[in-house]
Amino acid sequence: MLFTPNLTSLLRAAWAVFRKDLRSELRTRYAFNALALFAITTVVALSLGVGFLTEGRNADLPLIQAALLWVAVLFAAFTGLARAFVQEEEARTATALRLAALPLAVYLGKLLFNLTLLLLLDLLVALLFAVLLHIRVGNLGLFAALLVAGSLGLVVATTLIAAIIARASVKGALFAVLSFPLLVPLLVVAIQGTALALAGSGWEHGRAPLQVLLAYTVALFVAALFLFGSVWEA
């Protein structure tokens, strides 16, 4: 047996990919600036467009607020999360990485990096919504749990798709086209769950969407583990 990968060394390699991406990002701030600028402009535009939504003006207020929040997160994510792979291809460093690292280590490292970015983005968007749109969160714990679970699913899907589109000529359009059908079920559940959290429902009501989001994430993650090698080395 010549080639004997083990879990510890795989995770160590994935951690190295994550730290490399983080170090590059801290020096260039390319992805985070793109995400943050998009998030800020989107939420400011929303606040100017709809003003302070109040329950008196709309009975479905939590649902509308949840939908607006997830749309802002989704589109900001579209602008930044593909960078993890696109940057490697554009700077032509992907070849060196392909020869040196196991595909799975690359996927896990990039996944962790994208998750870090998206959680920072979630925090930023939630704060902007609180300040500019005056949203009130009835159940903060459930709200945070749903945001994290939804982001996990979003990152698992978009990281794989980013690897698929990285070498295409029309990256932006292809990223949105491939992501949309994959993310629709996730978004529907995330929006409905978040609406419950905003309305102040208890954990007994929030458990179902949370479970669906986590199940969706696990299924997609397992599929990505099987598919990524073929995508990366194609």
Binding site: S9, R12, A13, A16, V17, R19, K20, R23, S24, R27, T28, A91, R92, T93, T95, A96, L97, A100, A101, L102, A105
Partner: peptide
Amino acid sequence: LQLYRELTALENLRFFAEVRG
């Protein structure tokens, strides 16, 4: 073959060593 321009030479080598185990 291109390495990471935003990293130092040592950081590049350490990274590629680490992903190789």
